[in-house]
Structure formats: C-alpha cells, structure tokens
C-alpha cells in the first residue's frame, strides 16, 4: 500500500505541473519518496496491475489510472470513512482463507476453489466474519464452498452475529471464488424448484419439471451472484466491496500474520496444524 500511495503522490506532482509522465518518470520519482528494490520493468508491471494505462489524448498519450478503479476506490473510501465517524460503528469483514499444511493461509484464487478442495483431503476453506469493534470471530471450516453453504452460513451464523445496521466489508472477488452447482435434467423437480425460488425466478410447484428446467436454462447465470449481499441488505445491513487494489486495507491480514507468527514460534522448523493446537484455538485466543 505504501508503494501505491507513493505512486499517487508522484502522479499528483506531475499532473500539478501539467506533465504527462512515462512509467519510468514515475519510477524515478517514487524512488525519491520511498526506497524500492523493484527494477524499472517490475515497477512498470506493478503499475499496470494497479490499473495504470496510457490513454490516447488530443495532445498525446497520458499515463493515468483507469477511471473505474479510481471511482471504485472513491466509493469504498467514502463509505468506510463516513461509517468510522459514527459512534461505535458496527464494521465487519467477511473473509476466507485456505487452510492446509503449507500454513500460508492464502485467500482462495479468483476462480472456483472447488478443484483445489477436491484434489486433496487435508485442505479446507475457513470462511469467517470478524468484527473490528468487538473482535469477535465467527467462522466455519468447509470443504465445499458453494452458494448453498455460503448462504446457509450467512442465514444461520452471520445474521445472528451482526449488530443492527452493520456495514459488512467483502473482497470484490469474493463471489467469484464460490462455485455454483449446475443443475441437469437428472436432478429432481424439487431441486430445480428450490433453485428457481432461491434466485427469485417466478414459478409454482404446479408447473411441470420440463417447464421448470426450461426456466432454469433461460436464466442468465452470470447475473446470479451469490445472493449473500441481498440477504444481508434485506436485514438492514450494508455490504460494501473492497476493491482488489485495496486488499491491504483489510485488517484480517493482521489476524493471519499473528497466527503465522504464533505457529512459527511454536515450531519454527516444521510447523503443522496438528502439533500447535490448531488454527481454531489460535483464532479463539484472539
């Protein structure tokens, strides 16, 4: 995040002077703001990942951040800063981490983690919600990260844990990691009906299975995200999405650094979940 802030500071200096800098100009300028071991090429690559592009303008090319990234950041920061100003704000973070013997506790990849979970028996995902006010953690370990499980967790656990009118922060790519079970004509009529109702598609139990399946087929699946945000919003909470480029602003990173350090200090040579009381105990310790 320090690098990102230094880049923005540097861009601001150039723009104020009416200059459209090159990647290398920004690299040289950033080196004056913070020390960096990145080469010019690595730095340029980092900037591209952060969303910087050359935009063709009547006066030439202009290096700038993609406006959609700037705007997303604005809306996120505006909401979170306003919320923090309130007396005892109820802010929660929903996060998920891969739990395996590597003990890296990484976030699941953007695409479905289904294949990863199926390929090995000792890997699971810890799906949890943490409050930055009460420091409470509520979570589940699961081997099946699908919409049904996530929505059940939201309904059975999260809604109980949340204080009224809470703000829930979720990573932008959270929904992409959750797999969706595709229905086939071999599924039962009840399953198809259940799916249609869960996704608010008008239908009745009097309809024949063929009609219901036709409705399922015609429903554009890409628009159907995991509907956890609509469940939360229906209960008066607000869900805000943390842009991918702002992941460092998620305090859950501190929690996992704490756990990593704790595990390392207990058995620095060969840390294993089994010989250090397990992640659950460490989380409880928090």
């Amino acid at each position: 995040m320090e690098l990102q802030i230094a880049i923005l500071k540097s861009m601001n200096i150039f723009y104020r002077e009416g200059i459209s800098p090159s990647f290398n100009d920004v690299y040289e300028s950033v080196k004056d703001i913070i020390p960096t071991e990145l080469t010019s090429a690595q730095f340029e690559n980092n900037m591209i990942v952060l969303g910087y592009i050359y935009k063709k303008m009547p006066f030439g090319r202009l290096l700038m951040e993609k406006p959609e990234i700037t705007f997303q950041r604005f809306f996120y920061l505006q909401t979170i800063i306003e919320t923090r100003k309130k007396n005892k704000p109820n802010i929660y973070y929903i996060d998920q981490r891969i739990i395996d013997n590597s003990l890296r506790f990484q976030k699941p990849p953007s695409q479905s983690v289904e294949a990863l979970l199926q390929s090995t028996n000792d890997t699971s995902v810890f799906l949890y919600i943490v409050s930055t006010t009460t420091r409470q953690v509520n979570g589940i370990f699961t081997n099946v990260l699908d919409h049904a499980n996530v929505n059940k967790w939201i309904n059975d656990v999260v809604l109980d844990a949340l204080k009224p009118k809470s703000v829930v922060v979720v990573d932008s790519n959270f929904g992409h990691t959750i797999s969706r079970k595709e229905l086939t004509m071999y599924d039962t009529k009840a399953d198809i009906l259940k799916w249609l109702k869960e996704n608010s598609i008008p239908c009745t139990s009097n309809m024949r299975k063929a009609e219901l399946f036709e409705l399922y087929k015609k429903t554009p699946k890409k628009d159907l995200n995991c509907n956890f945000s609509s469940i939360l919003e229906a209960h008066g909470h607000r869900v805000i999405y943390l842009p991918t480029t702002l992941e460092d602003l998620n305090p859950t990173n501190f929690l996992w650094n704490f756990i990593r350090n704790k595990l390392q200090s207990q058995d620095p040579d060969k840390p294993r979940l089994t010989n250090c009381g397990g992640v659950t105990n460490l989380i409880c310790e928090l």
């Binding site: 923005l8 601001n12 009416g18 303008m57 950041r73 920061l77 923090r84």
Partner: peptide
Amino acid sequence: GLYKIKQMEKELFKLDAEIEESLDNVLRM
C-alpha cells in the same frame, strides 16, 4: 494495525481528491 489502516484510508481519500483536480488541469490542456 487498525489505526494504520484508518490513516491510510484518509490519506488515500485526500490524495484522490487532489489528483482529481490536478488531472483535470492536464485534461483541459
């Protein structure tokens, strides 16, 4: 930790407002 995050949120927000203005200057050229 959380204090640092709050500071960074405010710094980014302020910086974005400044850039919005300075970038407009370049775009008007």
